[in-house]
Computed example of a mutant assay.
Amino acid sequence: MVKRLTRRKEKKNNYQLNSFDSDESLVFDSDGMNGDDSTTTSESSSGELSLGPELESSRNLETRLGPAQNYMVRMLSWKKRRLSFRTSAKKTELLGFDFDRHPETCSVVDSQKGEYWWEVKELVSRNGAARLKAQVFFASFDQRSERAAGESACTALVAVIAHWLHSNHASMPTRPEFDNLITQGSSEWRKLCSNTAYTNAFPDKHFDLETVLKADVRPVTVSHEKSFTGFFSPDKFECLKGAMSFDEIWNEIKSSETNNCQPRVYIISWNDHFFVLKVESKAYYIIDTLGERLFEGCKQAYMLKFDDSSLMYGKKKKKDDEMAICSGKECCREYIKRFLAAIAVEELEEEEKKGRVSAFTLHQRLQIDFHYSSFSSATSSSHFFF
């Protein structure tokens, strides 16, 4: 299991690394777990959080007790807590193509057979505050399709994709290869589902990364020393102040570019889902096997490419005009912040002002993990290096 590290600020602007390994810390593992507890989570494109009956019971008890007793209730009941996710009945667009404003797209075909098909698309964030122009590559289907049958297979899928990327440093998958990776990863997940030892530990069949790597789905390892755990906008929330931020993680990744000739592959965990980030000197790639993470109704896995041609715009305050936010590889950072996490941060910030948001919810919705992966030529009893 990757040890959780965040950066805390001390007096005189010094820093020290603190471990959040204890149950009291409320820092989750990659699959939303804490410690040895299992959870009842499932992949959800909406990421709407609902609390189980034990959490609701604990919350009701806390309202009848004073601060000191509340603290003890939270501490004693932590190991009984479980999370569950449900898809919101209200259909809201996660990310979408603004066809009304930008109906034209430019397709770039690098093969007459259509095996490479990068399309220049304009994407609009769900809150309408940002617009991205970047290259997108679609598979024929995603993990939830009948062909793949990998409903909750994202953890196995990222292991399979990471292994392929490490085996093909200078390449990105063609469409047939991308399709094949999705079917392979989903097949590996179904094999894990047939093992009662795994399903007893994970009744929802949403296995954590450590379980998948120890099962030797693919010879991939994760290095603790080169991995990061942080939060989106921690300074906006009292209980997260001093924790390592997403921007600090990104700066660490950028600063390592000059020291690495080979591409780096990170397995990212956020909001009950796994996807892959490939870092190259000239481009960053996001690879996601769940289409609805791009926009609601999308049933195709996709890759986003951020290079010198990428542009992002945002609306000016109190005006309808747009201004340039960033360009190039920096659009990858802003895409994750403005397209994926922005609404969650805004909603939780409002709850924080009302005093109604818990540390439990903040950690679940704002924590992001970057697992540094590498190729392993030999089978190991442990695929997490410390």
Rank of each mutant, 00 (worst) to 15 (best):
R293T: 06
R293S: 10
L294R: 00
L294I: 07
L294D: 02
L294Y: 02
F295P: 03
F295K: 07
F295G: 09
E296M: 12
E296V: 11
E296C: 11
G297I: 05
G297W: 05
G297S: 05
G297V: 04
C298N: 12
C298Y: 04
C298E: 05
C298G: 03
K299V: 11
K299D: 14
K299F: 08
K299H: 12
K299S: 12
Q300C: 09
Q300T: 07
Q300W: 02
Q300S: 10
A301L: 09
A301Y: 04
A301I: 07
A301G: 13
A301R: 02
Y302G: 00
Y302S: 01
M303F: 08
M303H: 07
L304G: 02
L304N: 01
L304M: 05
K305L: 10
K305D: 02
K305P: 02
F306S: 00
F306G: 00
F306L: 01
F306N: 00
F306I: 01
F306V: 01
D307S: 05
D307P: 02
D307W: 02
D307M: 04
D307K: 03
D307H: 02
D308C: 07
D308E: 11
D308M: 05
D308G: 04
S309I: 08
S309N: 12
S310W: 00
S310L: 02
L311G: 03
L311N: 07
L311E: 10
L311M: 12
M312L: 12
M312G: 08
M312D: 07
M312P: 07
M312Q: 09
M312Y: 08
M312N: 08
Y313D: 05
Y313E: 06
G314T: 13
G314R: 11
G314C: 14
K315I: 13
K315G: 11
K315Y: 13
K316L: 09
K316H: 06
K316I: 04
K317Y: 07
K317R: 09
K317P: 02
K318R: 14
K318T: 13
K318D: 15
K318M: 13
K318C: 14
K319R: 14
D320F: 11
D320Q: 13
D320M: 12
D320V: 10
D321T: 15
D321E: 15
D321Q: 15
D321Y: 12
D321A: 15
D321G: 14
D321K: 15
E322T: 15
E322F: 15
E322L: 15
E322V: 14
M323C: 09
M323D: 10
M323W: 10
M323L: 11
A324L: 15
A324I: 15
I325P: 01
I325F: 09
I325M: 12
C326D: 07
C326Y: 02
S327R: 10
S327Q: 11
K329M: 10
K329T: 05
K329G: 01
E330R: 08
E330G: 05
E330I: 04
E330P: 03
C331A: 03
C331R: 00
C331S: 03
C331K: 00
C331T: 03
C331M: 03
C332L: 05
C332K: 00
C332Y: 00
C332I: 01
C332E: 01
